[in-house]
Amino acid sequence: MTEYKLVVVGAGGVGKSALTIQLIQNHFVDEYDPTIEDSYRKQVVIDGETCLLDILDTAGQEEYSAMRDQYMRTGEGFLCVFAINNTKSFEDIHHYREQIKRVKDSEDVPMVLVGNKCDLPSRTVDTKQAQDLARSYGIPFIETSAKTRQGVDDAFYTLVREIRKHKEKMSKDGKKKKKKSKTKCVIM
């Protein structure tokens, strides 16, 4: 069974824990209790493949930012979460993405942009803004509501699919490099 290491990042209060708990335990946590770091595991079937999701729910508070490099190193894919009623959390996505790329030393890291709290009427981040940002990053965008469960499975499952595509691409690139290195030079 394939294991996928997913990391949920975003500013404090955007609903990272609520999304994760909704996926794992099928219930909505409405009281806000700032996370330092929590880890969850769940076995699911995605596109006919049974897999184990190892999900790291991270601290959004700035005082825990020193811990970010460590979990970013171990993560295979990242859910970059903002709240649709919090423009600052949307603007912060850029910083999370840049930090992930720096730590992973790669421009090509599996990510999904997630606009959470889409059940709320007080939207300050337009869907088109988020779609445009995701398009500019070359990553999928999904709106979710941890409260109603809308888009929750889709967000995590899409990230797994992005990781699969990335692994497939990397193995193809690896095979191309191996083929090239088999060419021999004969000096007579």
Rank of each mutant, 00 (worst) to 15 (best):
V44T: 15
I36A: 10
E37N: 03
V7W: 11
I46R: 10
Y40M: 04
G10T: 00
L53T: 11
G13M: 12
G12Y: 08
V8K: 03
Y32L: 06
E63F: 05
L53P: 06
E63I: 04
K16G: 07
Q22M: 05
T20Y: 02
L53E: 08
I36T: 05
G15V: 00
G12M: 10
Q25K: 08
N26Q: 14
I36W: 01
I55S: 08
G12H: 07
E37R: 00
A18G: 13
V29D: 13
D54F: 03
Q22N: 14
F28E: 04
V29W: 08
Y4C: 10
I46K: 12
D33I: 03
D33L: 02
F28R: 04
C51R: 09
S39P: 01
T50R: 12
Q25L: 10
E37Y: 02
D47S: 08
D30M: 09
V8C: 08
A18S: 09
T20R: 02
V44W: 08
D38T: 02
S17T: 13
R41M: 12
E31N: 10
V8A: 06
Q22C: 05
A18D: 06
E37F: 02
D47H: 08
E31V: 12
I46C: 10
G10R: 01
K5N: 13
A59Y: 00
G48E: 11
S39R: 08
T2L: 09
T20E: 05
D47M: 06
D38R: 02
V14H: 12
E31A: 10
G60M: 00
Q22R: 11
Y32S: 05
D54T: 06
Q25I: 06
E37G: 01
G15C: 00
I21S: 15
Q25C: 07
G60S: 03
A59Q: 00
E3G: 11
A11P: 08
A11C: 12
D38V: 03
V14M: 11
H27M: 15
I21K: 13
S39Q: 06
G12T: 10
E62Q: 08
V8G: 04
T20F: 02
E49T: 11
F28L: 06
T20W: 01
V8R: 01
E49H: 09
I24F: 11
D47N: 10
H27L: 15
T20A: 09
E49D: 11
A11G: 09
G60Y: 01
K5W: 01
E62V: 07
D33C: 03
I21N: 15
F28Q: 04
G10D: 02
E49V: 09
E63N: 08
S39D: 09
V14W: 04
A11N: 07
